[in-house]
Amino acid sequence: MRGSGLVKRFGDRAAVDRVDIALAPGECLAVLGPNGAGKSTLLRMVATLLRPDSGALSVCGQELPGGRTRARAGIGYLGHDPLVYLDLTPRQNLELYAALYGLPDARERIDAGLDRVGLRARSFDPVRTFSRGMAQRLGLARALLHDPVLLLLDEPYSGLDAAGARLLDGVLADLGSARGAVMVTHEVERGVSLAGRVLVLRAGRVVLDEPVAGEASAFRARYEELVA
């Protein structure tokens, strides 16, 4: 994934202002920054949910916007919301997504996914009856269902319970060499401990983009300075 000179304006204000971002295969990038720094906007552009006003973006080897449909097949996106229908069961939700992604072995994948997030026993209850943490775990299963090469996570830990958080830690630790992940978070320590590289945004601009080195607590002080 690679983006350069990305700009997105809302009204007269530039939420993301000439941002360059790149992600090598096998890498996990943490996007940090205070509230309103443009982190989510940047991630939504990469997730093909928002079209940049200017700049070039290529995702999963596809130039956007031309190759966006192909790029989407490789993206797994998890945001604040689990992005599942509350009035459907987990299985029905995943069946919908399996069909939308065109997955050939839908049944096996859905079973495996539900097992993985520990929702197999509840797979015939409507999601509305779930706790927040369970719903978000289902969201994780949804995002991973098609085995995406690019994971895009927007504050993924905010809604996850302990079991879900462990699961996601495992996924991020075990990316392999072909996959990559971008995680937007305001939790500096967690971002630094999980990612191989950090990108810090402040008021829509990149103020830092470098590999993680040293202790998370040492980075904290620098971060405070950067966004102050």
Partner: peptide, 18 residues
């Protein structure tokens, strides 16, 4: 309405559905 109230629209839009 379900998509809006249950905030699922992004989920549909990130899939490669034309």
């Amino acid at each position: 309405v379900p998509e809006r109230e249950q905030r699922v629209l992004d989920g549909l839009l990130v899939t490669p559905v034309p």
